[in-house]
Design a protein around this nucleic acid. Structure first.
Lengths: 143, 143
DNA sequence: TATAGTGTGTATATACCATATTTACAGTGT
DNA sequence: ACACTGTAAATATGGTATATACACACTATA
């Protein structure tokens, strides 16, 4: 068992980024992006700290180097991280705030779609609110 | 101006299925599927009635015949419609109920994702509920 | 009552783009 | 020189969309 520098706790789970899976919905690079945004946004990967190298993360997640690069490129374009050739990849100063903002925007987008589907299914506003409350309670129990 | 048999009102808008666009998110065939589920689920395309032919819908939506076929195939697999070679395509008896059920399932899926993104963005349950209420009010105004 | 015609849905071969991989290249520090 | 970093190019695969040709069902009509 080898602990990598980006780990913050001696968790039996080796990687903070995953789960990553070809079976999961969405492309692999998107799953990596979402995972890193979560870790950065929730403060487990702090601004200035180094992310795992392309090769290290690729090997850990059993994924191609290019797939990691694709994910890091997108994150760099969003200003959340920045890559320096020969040095490594690091969390940007505004990375946490940008990650949370991205999550907020994504949440609004998904919520709009969910509400549209709900109304088209014949659900009333009261029923929708009720469903949201129930789901939030379930999420609580998971923590 | 030509009215087709599947139109229910002399709407200046010719087609009930659209809007369809390469620019819109999601593949074209999925947009067709969603549109037909909506029309069937909300009762504007009733069980037993004929849907537009592959060629007619393809021409109307300025899309390939194969794209329409792909959409109809998926809808048939879900039991919402049934295609009869040489005859046409028709809404199934349980089409409306199945469409609404599909919308409900899709809504739950999207809602789960939206709530997860919201919590990961740092939003509290109260803030999430508030956002849902605001969005529902906006949807009301559109009607 | 044959049968040609015109409408249905069906199947095959093709083009294109996003995704993911391998392999080789270039920069930075020790 | 070496061992690490990120970068770039060529390739393979799968999903999406297209055009073209094929098979079935009704119907008008000779």
């Amino acid at each position: 068992m080898v602990y990598t520098h980006y780990m913050l706790s001696p968790d039996p789970q080796r990687f903070v980024i995953p789960p990553i899976s070809s079976a999961a919905p969405g492309p692999l690079y998107q799953q990596i992006i979402d995972g890193i945004k979560r870790e950065v946004g929730e403060g487990r990967l702090r601004p200035g700290t180094a992310l795992p190298s392309f090769r290290a993360l690729a090997e850990d997640l059993m994924v191609s180097l290019i797939t990691v690069k694709r994910a890091y490129e997108d994150l760099e374009r969003e200003g959340i991280i920045h890559c320096k050739q020969g040095l490594g990849t690091f969390v940007s100063e505004k990375g946490a705030e940008l990650s949370r903002q991205a999550k907020r925007d994504q949440a609004r987008l998904l919520l709009r779609q969910a509400l549209r589907e709900s109304t088209e299914s014949g659900a009333t506003n009261a029923e929708i609110i009720k469903m949201v409350r129930e789901m939030l309670e379930q999420h609580q129990e998971e923590d």
